[in-house]
Design a protein around this nucleic acid. Structure first.
Length: 715
DNA sequence: TTAGGGTTAG
């Protein structure tokens, strides 16, 4: 039916548009052309071989005689990623031939579309239309592919092209429809994509996969999996490797380990796990579900690994907080002969940022230089972020100012604003926020998270309120994370009522972050009434999160309500929840030395414990008095003092004073927030020993120097 | 002598 319709259309439009159809090579083709034809088909595996054949054909004048050979070369140039060489040849043909046929136009549009030259593809399509050549069922998929990936966010070319598929009668073609579904989905019009999909009279596996992938890309994994089930039930179609890759990504978004195991089992049973893309997607799927161990097993058992396999596993470790494992795997990657690429570098830089290890970060930075890796703006931003998170704000700032203004993107500004914020330098963060606007860079939702957080850390309440109001001016809708920053800012400042009212004014239901910020503020200001409201909301949203039970328990402990403390601890025990162990790390030469609270396994424990006791004696002569409110157990004062002395961050700092060069800065990272007593201790120690002490806790940086802290005791 | 769907990072 479709074929007949097409023939009718062609008859109507006349044969002129198709008048330059080259004859296909046949047994009657001259032997030289036939030889080149075979050469192109069988012995042309790379661009240099192709260039040689191209030049030889030009010298012999064969290209002007046989358009078929020209078309083959265009196809090959396209395949090897050289659409501009293809274009020169194409222009030569158009110069000689009054009306090149649609096949040649299609081939050239395809060369651009398949190599990411969307604007060129669309321009050529327009030229083709102006030349009176009618697009056909082959043209549209190429043109739509170019429309789908157009970098101009305002481009709406696909709508015009959709109209043309209807005008020319090719709209019911399954290939054209699949390309339309894909184009609509890639331009974020999932509803239109679904409409085209639903209107199709015939669908094969590719059509279903296109729609399944569309939902996966639109972060609607549930819809994607529903469609997969329908495809299997209604059409008895089985997902192939490409479909499984999409499905694995959807399952990863859902974070459901049970479904992940089913996908993995399907891949094994159907013999497609040998496909490296499928195996990679299984690794990524498990890491997104938080099951690093299954991911590791899938990775170890892979028959073949490419860069993506290594990067997926590395990133999986970092995302799941196992940055040390990532560092070990990075060594293995190099030993295996797989050369890290800039994506690997990006992952490793974020691993170092996570660990807060400047020494390791510097090592990766040197590695990037030594291996002459391409440092694009994304990697540059990640490096700045890493230096800032490792305590080296000056290097981060220097790097930022070395990037030429026109090369800085919004993320560059965001990274530095966030960096100043976490180091407690709110005024500088605000200056940057204003500067970026003066330079014509529009703040985005991440900018607002960073600047609101910076205001919060520095106690800049009015400025924070103003920035929050600025959001609507920049057409950025406040999300839960922005409300979290505001609640944190108001709560820290003791404006608990205003914080609570803000939560009540939220258009969407408050999430765990928002209630968590209020609960924390209630802990700081000892408001158990509001604290209970926040905690009860949190217990409903995340009943298995130990941190919230601990926070409420701390609120009760601070007001000596030991009975409630006991009840909460019992509740946690019944649910099998435990508070994460406090852990601090200090860099010592090439090593990173870790300390747990009251660490019994650390090889340095004997000398460090003794040194800590000496330090406390010294501090007491200068006026230090233990802050026993930081001990949340109902025990005697003497025991409380003892517990305080062995907090992980104190042990790490004591180690630093004992072992490191007296001129050097002591840098410690802690997984939880620093306690009041440790904070006060480090102020004393920085003064007595004239040492700079930098502590990164779960929330921010504290720079201790000459008896005071950069946070001005506001944290 | 041409066609539509894919994994990592941000």
């Amino acid at each position: 039916m479709q074929a007949q319709r097409r023939l009718e259309l062609r008859r109507k439009l006349g044969a002129r548009a198709f008048s330059c159809t080259p004859s296909p090579p046949s047994s009657s083709s001259p032997p030289l052309e036939a030889r080149y034809d075979r050469l192109l088909k069988n012995s042309c595996d790379d661009a240099s071989a192709l260039k040689q054949i191209h030049s030889s054909l030009t010298t012999r004048g064969l290209l002007t005689r046989d358009p078929h050979l020209s078309a083959q070369i265009i196809v090959k140039y396209s395949k090897f990623g050289h659409p501009h060489h293809a274009r020169s040849l194409f222009d030569g043909i158009t110069a000689r031939c009054e009306r090149p046929n649609s096949f040649l136009w299609n081939t050239m549009v395809r060369a651009y579309a398949n190599n990411g030259h969307c604007a060129d593809a669309l321009e050529l399509y327009a030229l083709m239309r102006r030349g009176g050549v009618l697009p056909d069922n082959y043209t549209f998929p190429f043109v739509l592919k170019a429309c789908a990936s157009d970098s101009d966010p305002l481009a709406r070319g696909w709508e015009v092209v959709h109209g043309e598929t209807i005008k020319t009668g090719f709209d019911p073609d399954m290939y054209v429809e699949a390309a339309l579904v894909d184009a609509y989905a890639k331009r974020g019009r999932i509803g239109c994509a679904r409409k085209v999909f639903d209107g199709m009279t015939q669908r094969d596996l590719v059509c279903w996969t296109t729609m399944i992938t569309a939902y996966e890309q639109a972060e609607q994994p549930q819809e994607s999996l529903v469609l997969l089930c329908r495809m299997q039930r209604e059409e008895s179609l089985l997902p192939d490797p490409v479909a499984i890759v999409s499905v694995a990504s959807s399952v990863g978004q859902m974070g459901d380990v049970k479904s992940a195991k089913s996908v993995h089992a399907y891949a094994i049973q159907n013999g497609i796990l040998g496909d490296v893309c499928v195996a990679n997607s299984v690794v990524a799927m498990y890491t997104k579900c938080g099951n690093v161990e299954y991911a590791r097993m899938a990775f170890v058992r892979m028959e073949e690994r490419d860069k993506i396999s290594w990067n997926s596993m590395l990133s999986g470790y970092v995302q799941n907080g196992q940055a040390n494992e990532a560092l070990l795997l990075f060594e293995q990657m190099q030993d295996s002969g797989c050369k890290p690429n800039p994506v690997t570098a990006l992952i490793m830089v974020s691993a170092c940022a996570f660990l807060g290890s400047c020494h390791l970060g510097k090592k990766i930075h040197d590695y990037i230089h030594e291996n002459k890796m391409k440092v694009d703006i994304t990697l540059q931003n990640a490096l700045m972020d890493m230096y800032a998170k490792c305590g080296n704000l000056e290097t981060a700032s220097k790097m930022f100012h070395e990037i030429p203004l026109k090369e800085r993107d919004v993320s560059s500004w965001n990274v530095l604003i966030s960096a100043y914020g976490m180091h407690g330098r709110g005024e500088e963060a605000l200056n940057l926020y204003l500067q970026m606007q003066e330079k014509g860079v529009a703040p985005n939702h991440i900018t607002f998270t960073s600047i609101l957080s910076a205001c919060s850390h520095a106690g800049l309440i009015n400025e924070g309120r103003k920035c929050f109001a600025d959001m609507s001016k920049h057409s950025v809708m406040p999300e839960a994370k922005h409300y979290t920053c505001m609640v944190d800012m108001l709560g820290r400042a003791g404006l608990l009522g205003e914080a609570f009212n803000l939560i009540k004014s939220m258009p969407a239901s408050p999430n765990d972050g928002v209630w968590g910020a209020l609960l924390l503020a209630c802990r700081v200001h000892g408001n158990s009434e509001l604290g209970e409201i926040a905690a009860n909301n949190l217990f409903q949203i995340e009943p298995e999160h130990p941190g919230y039970y601990v926070l409420l328990s701390n609120i009760y402990a601070a007001s000596r309500r030991w009975q409630e403390v006991g009840k909460l601890r019992e509740n946690m025990k019944t649910r099998g929840l435990s508070k994460p162990a406090a852990f601090s790390v200090i860099e010592y030469g090439q090593e990173a030395i870790g300390f747990y609270t009251a660490d019994q396994l650390n090889p340095y424990r004997g000398e460090v414990y003794r040194h800590m006791e000496r330090l406390v004696v010294e501090m007491k002569t200068r006026g230090y008095f233990p802050d026993r409110s930081c001990v949340l157990h109902d025990v005697e004062d003497e025991d409380k003092d003892h517990i305080l002395n062995y907090h992980s961050e104190k042990l790490a700092v004591a180690f630093g004073i004992l072992k490191t060069d007296s001129e050097s800065t002591i840098t410690v990272s802690k997984n939880l927030r620093i306690c009041n007593d440790c904070h006060s201790t480090f102020k004393f120690l920085s003064d007595i020993y004239q040492r700079q002490i930098v502590v990164r806790d779960a929330n921010r940086f504290h720079h201790f120097q000459a008896g005071s802290c950069s946070c001005k005791d506001y944290w």
